[in-house]
Design a protein around this nucleic acid. Structure first.
Lengths: 241, 241
DNA sequence: TGCCCGATTTGACGCGTATCAAAGACATCG
DNA sequence: CGATGTCTTTGATACGCGTCAAATCGGGCA
């Protein structure tokens, strides 16, 4: 089972509502059936391949999207090319921030991504008419802020080994939000270079730390992407706390 | 002129409204005179000294505050004591997040801080009655998220020298949001240890980098706290971008 | 199947920052 | 005004991670 598959719903209806209504961070739980219908008239569903830039300067300013499946990375870059991934978004997160033109974050598909997009004007009208909807977006933003701050602790204070373990734990958690057992299997949604850019490390250091976790039998890796964690608590220990 | 003084308004009226109504990130611009009056009946204004914990487990859950003056640091700590400051809040920021009990961030006065507090119940009632107010809080949260992500780039990808320059720039900017000239003078709102915890460095490294900036005449420091920057653009170069 | 090319791993080495320790500055209080 | 304690600076050394380079892996395609 891979991450993408995990977050796909089996409905084929190309409307925003069906894609996300039952998910906690989705934006549509706040809408009435009528409103969903209205919104879905303007929405378009599409799949983009890994590496596609979803938000640079262009797309974001004209539309918003719900992530149906896949993983999107948000990143910042310095003038000299140094890059930092500042967040990962999983289905059913909302992509594109209201009331902002742009602040220098670019969004790129980390895996193959399916999104349901609709025009900026449509969602902004609905927001102004429906406090409920704004509340939903507010909740997601608060959750993102929490995640950003958690990650600041990781970036600023953890060792390379702890960072890599934290990353694996993050992916395991998001891929299986309600996993109860102590073991998990999943696919890494991104390359070693991306992981390094997320952790503030180099590719080589990420690789070495993964090797160390493998040698210590904390994880198993197949084909560079399939990861299985036999005991989550041992991984958690490695992550610091 | 020091940072605290800068953000104090000259009104002595102990109501929330007077303290923040004209500031961009204040929460009260959205309220009508009647509502301000109503709210100010429940509000209490107080000053706390540097080092006081404003939000650990206790205070935050029962009240919200507007920062009238001073600087508040938000931090996270690992089990073994490693600490990371995940944000600084200046007047007229709002302290205490709606719809959340707590997520492990503690808030501590970095300088002497004046706050205007009011009961959780009062603000939550007003929020539910006034979309405007929620919108205002949403805007602040979005701004905090931007700042958090900017700082993630600093933590993950900048060198010690760039980090320290970025910090000075941050303080200069927040102390004088609309400074036009190329030179500024301000007081550091916190100790070297705090700065280190904000930058993901050690105290010693912060000290060495400050010394280097001083030797290169990018900044001047008096009494370990008074900083003057003759040319902001030179400091900005040191910060990376 | 075998070749090719990008991604990943592994190795050797250097640098930047942490660590440990001591000296110096500054504020408080007798 | 000098003693005391805390914060800051400075110095010497160690080590983790970055850098550069080469080897190996894995997937795509003929």
């Amino acid at each position: 089972m891979d991450i993408q598959r995990k977050d796909v719903h089996n409905s084929e209806t190309p409307v925003l509502c069906r894609a996300c209504e039952s998910r906690h961070r989705g934006v549509c739980g706040a809408l009435t059936p009528d409103q969903l219908l209205q919104l879905s008239r303007h929405s378009t569903r599409r799949a983009v391949e890994s590496g596609t830039e979803l938000v640079g300067e262009s797309l974001k300013t004209t539309s918003y999207s719900n992530i149906i499946s896949g993983v999107v990375k948000l990143s910042k870059m310095m003038a000299d090319g140094r890059q930092q991934i500042v967040g990962l978004q999983f289905a059913p997160d909302f992509l594109g921030r209201p009331f902002r033109s742009e602040n220098g974050v670019s969004a790129e598909a980390a895996t193959e991504v399916k999104v349901c997009s609709f025009p900026k004007a449509a969602i902004e009208r609905m927001i102004s008419e429906m406090p409920e909807l704004e509340h939903k977006l507010f909740e997601q933003t608060l959750a993102e802020l929490d995640e950003a701050r958690d990650w600041m602790l990781t970036l600023g204070r953890k060792t390379a080994g702890e960072k890599v373990a934290s990353f694996l734990l993050l992916i395991a958690t998001h891929a299986f939000p309600d996993n109860e057992s102590d073991s998990v299997t999943f696919d890494l949604p991104m390359s070693r270079t991306d992981i390094a850019d997320f952790l503030g490390l180099t590719m080589e250091t990420v690789s070495r730390q993964l090797t160390k976790l493998r040698k210590d039998d904390v994880i198993h890796i197949l084909n560079n992407r399939h990861v299985s964690v036999p005991d989550l608590s041992r991984l958690s220990e490695r992550a610091g706390s």
